[in-house]
């Protein structure tokens, strides 16, 4: 076992699958000699050659189309969208084409494409680099959407994504790339898509969350413990499809829940989670299920982003409302 940051774990997952399956190709803007703008593909071109790890011209839609065409000749593309804010440039290839490839061929063509992309706020980027657009793709039938919060999860989930026969969007929160290290096995292992992980057990309140907000939620849970509350933190890991079983099991145990997302209130996954809880577990609830989200504005200018992004204090405040209801 090695200590790895999340970005090292992501590189390691790609290296593992490039090694294990000759049909895996890694491509995108600057992923070759440069190793990607965040170095996620560092060393891969050198190790596997320019035929399997390669730079593309600068056109996101073209990259998406390229991936679709490559699946028709039996390849398993792992394509990078340099920043997820560029999703709008490739939205037809992603939602209009890839997501529908199995369906519109009556189930004939599979579409084993993994789309990796950095996203998320708190790292002072220019506009269209930090937005949480996961709600957009999660609402498109035909796509799976994965957002890891730890190095260990990142490697196991990315390997599962690459092995999946369906298109998977794999979103990497930029703030988590190098924020901490964790023991990560050097061999291949998978974490099933669609399975949440209880990152902290508790009995008084469930915080259901994903991505960077997992860590804010864990901070909040620790603080709340000092006040005598036992808080459970459920990391969704896959936001489409949701792991309903784990969510409901947790809520039935704690009888209280809040849902935390970095995205705006109108834009994310939280509303879905709340609906599932009210449809399936309303009789277990002692309080309304509240959400902690960013406000419904455009993603803010970099100097103001930290007052806009939800944080542990916001979570504690909302958690207390629910705990004392």
């Amino acid at each position: 076992m090695a200590q790895m940051t999340m970005i090292q774990a992501i590189t390691d997952a790609m290296r593992t699958e490039l090694k294990n399956d000759e049909n895996v190709l890694v491509f995108g803007e600057d992923v070759g000699a440069n190793g990607g703008v965040f170095r996620a593909t560092e060393g891969l071109q050198k190790e596997f050659g320019v035929d399997r790890v390669f730079d593309t011209p600068l056109a996101e839609s073209g990259i998406g189309g390229l991936a679709i065409g490559l699946t028709l000749t039996g390849f398993r593309p792992v394509m990078e969208i340099q920043f997820f804010g560029f999703l709008y440039e490739v939205i037809d290839s992603v939602s209009g084409q890839l997501a529908r490839q199995s369906f519109r061929s009556g189930g004939h063509f599979n579409a084993p494409v993994t789309i990796r992309s950095p996203f998320g706020g708190g790292v002072a980027t220019p506009e269209m680099h930090a937005d949480s657009f996961e709600g957009l793709v999660a609402s498109q039938p035909g796509l799976k959407v994965v957002i890891p919060s730890t190095p260990y999860d990142a490697k196991g989930l990315l390997i599962s994504a690459i092995k999946d026969e369906n298109p998977v969007i794999f979103l990497e929160h930029m703030k988590l790339y190098r924020s901490f290290r964790q023991e990560v096995p050097e061999e291949e292992y998978t974490i099933p898509l669609g399975k949440a992980d209880v990152k902290r057990e508790g009995t008084d309140l469930s915080i259901i969350t994903y991505g960077a907000m997992v860590h804010e939620s864990l901070k909040a849970a620790e603080a709340l413990e000092k006040d005598g509350y036992s808080v459970e933190v459920v990391d969704l890991r896959t936001i489409q499809p949701l792991d309903i079983e784990t969510i409901i099991e947790s809520v039935e145990k704690t009888n209280r829940a809040i849902v935390v997302q970095e995205a705006q209130k109108q834009a994310g996954i939280a509303a879905n989670v709340v609906s599932e809880i009210t449809e399936r577990a309303i009789l277990s609830l002692e309080a309304p299920v509240l959400r902690v989200t960013a406000p419904d504005t455009i993603y803010p200018f970099a100097q103001g982003e930290n007052s806009w992004l939800p944080n542990a204090n916001d979570i504690i405040e909302t958690a207390k409302k629910v705990l004392t209801f």
Partner: peptide, 29 residues
């Protein structure tokens, strides 16, 4: 649209132009 096995075609494209980038992908393959 269940293309017979071994027949090298894609379903007719409705979105104008999308087939052009996909053709680049098939050709690269």
């Amino acid at each position: 649209s269940i293309i017979p096995e071994g027949l090298n075609i894609f379903m007719p494209q409705i979105i104008i132009g999308a087939q052009y980038i996909q053709a680049a992908g098939v050709a690269l393959g």
